[in-house]
């Protein structure tokens, strides 16, 4: 007998953890009572809940109903105390469900049962919403950016400005829960731009100068709706290789910005099931240049 009691204790701990509010001893007593002290009622209740057989409240004693209620609240306590979807919660939830359905069939203390059920549901939803998941995505953006260069001559230096458009196909990953997302995106860049002198007497003009490069972006965003709309901030490293033609006059040379630049941008994303529309608007750090992009993507 003692050995059996010991096993019940171990199993209880294994299955449910220790519900602090009710105390392990108290819960164990109730579980023991449920299993051993009311075999007929428990068997009827088991069939009623698991097999959907009809049960009548009058077939169960007041003492038994109160026992079910205590077990129900005991498992509820265990769940409500959890800060994450730990194994204890995973194991307690089915037990909680069972006793909730049992009490529902008996229509016993319905208001209290409903109130506790609502609390548990809300709590589990919050825990679920806090859970981070890894998601992968692929996208295609249409981007525009400007870059500076200088035409250096024997007597003066003329500022050159290139306005570019290009496509950025890429992939990314994000770690996200219901409210927050952290993302990393990698994309290639293929485009072209037109360059001309910003001001001055010297003329320099070229169109459709090819640009090739890539972008690495790290961002954090807030998911603002249940459909997945997101707004956030992103920092990115942009690498662009674009060679402007050297003037035929050997007195002049062209110096260009460094190929690597850093940008900070504001992005927004709207999800339509698996697909999404994204916009990005930002500024290059330490250079007077603005970057924007609009694109479509798919989440996997």
């Amino acid at each position: 007998m003692k050995k059996r009691g010991g096993w019940v204790w171990v199993i209880t701990l294994f299955l449910c953890g220790v519900p602090e509010s009710f105390g392990a001893d108290q819960m164990n007593d109730w579980i023991k009572a449920f299993n051993k002290n009311h075999p007929v009622e428990t068997a009827k209740m088991r069939n009623g809940v698991n097999r959907g057989e009809e049960i009548k409240g009058s077939d169960f004693s007041q003492e038994y109903k109160e026992l079910l209620y205590n077990l129900y609240q005991g498992y509820a306590s265990r769940i409500i105390e959890s800060k994450s979807l730990d194994p204890g919660v995973t194991k307690s939830t089915p037990q909680f469900e069972f006793f909730k359905k049992a009490l529902g069939k008996l229509e016993y203390r319905e208001d209290e049962v409903d109130s506790t059920s609502d609390r548990i549901r809300s709590h589990l939803t919050q825990l679920e919403e806090k859970k981070y998941r890894l998601r992968w995505r692929a996208f295609l953006h249409y981007m525009s950016w400007q870059s500076q260069a200088a035409l250096v001559g024997p007597f003066e230096t003329t500022s050159l400005l290139t306005t570019n458009l290009g496509f950025c196909p890429g992939v990314g990953a994000s770690l996200e829960n219901r409210f927050w997302a952290l993302s990393l995106d990698l994309s290639g860049l293929y485009g072209s731009g037109g360059v001309s002198a910003v001001q001055g007497l010297v003329e320099y003009q070229q169109s459709q100068v090819p640009a090739l490069g890539g972008r690495i972006a790290i961002g954090g965003g807030r998911i603002v709706s249940s459909s997945g709309s997101e707004v956030g901030l992103r920092g990115s490293l942009l690498f662009v290789r674009q060679n402007l033609t050297k003037p035929s006059d050997s007195q002049y040379s062209v110096t260009q910005d460094k190929m690597i630049s850093y940008t900070v941008s504001l992005f927004s994303r709207w999800r339509f099931n698996r697909f999404y529309l994204e916009t990005d608007f930002g500024r290059t750090v330490a250079r007077p240049s603005t970057l924007w992009s609009i694109g479509l993507g798919s989440v996997f």
Partner: peptide
């Protein structure tokens, strides 16, 4: 922010 795209000139 207004950006003009012109193959013949690039403007701020």
């Amino acid at each position: 922010q207004t950006r003009t795209f012109n193959p013949n000139a690039s403007t701020q």
